[in-house]
Amino acid sequence: MPDGEPNSQSTFEKIFKAYFGLLERPVKFVRENVVEPARLNKENHYYHRRYRRIPGVDECEIGDEICFYEVNKQFKRDKMVDGEVLNILRQRKVECGVYYGEDKKKYCEKEFKDYEEAAANFFQKYGDLGAGGNVIDAYMKQKHRLIWERRHGPVGSGMKATE
């Protein structure tokens, strides 16, 4: 059947188009004559908000609640952003796995590695704090991890026996 010729339509196609045109034609008419001219000169955009970074909780005075509030807000924002990044990576991993099925070990190595690394980093910073964990908890957790690493080497290498 040659392409692009109107005569090449079969009878079935003609009937089909005439029938569904009952629905399609009015919709198309309104879209082209009402909606699109109305949208021509309308500003319709939004911006991405970027927050300025503030110093960490280690520079707050003890008992300075306002400083704590600001740093904690920044911490919660960071947590949300990192969580979203992790979500995207997880989604990529899952989609790749579903697409390749049995072959996912072969083709999705990068996605799996990225996700595992990001999840480990996320847990290293925010893990074990619970939903109400604040910035001081995270700071103390980091401090304890650094002390542990000074005594025993990097995390995952096992604890040295005490003499």
Binding site: R39, K42, N44, H45, Y46, Y47, H48
Partner: peptide, 25 residues
């Protein structure tokens, strides 16, 4: 919804401070 289509994300122009509502989608 008839007169505004899907909003698009734009970079902030140089030297322009957007109002707070311009960050909503």
């Amino acid at each position: 919804n008839l007169t505004h289509g899907k909003p698009e994300l734009k970079d902030i122009p140089e030297g322009y401070e957007p109002e707070y509502w311009e960050y909503f989608r």
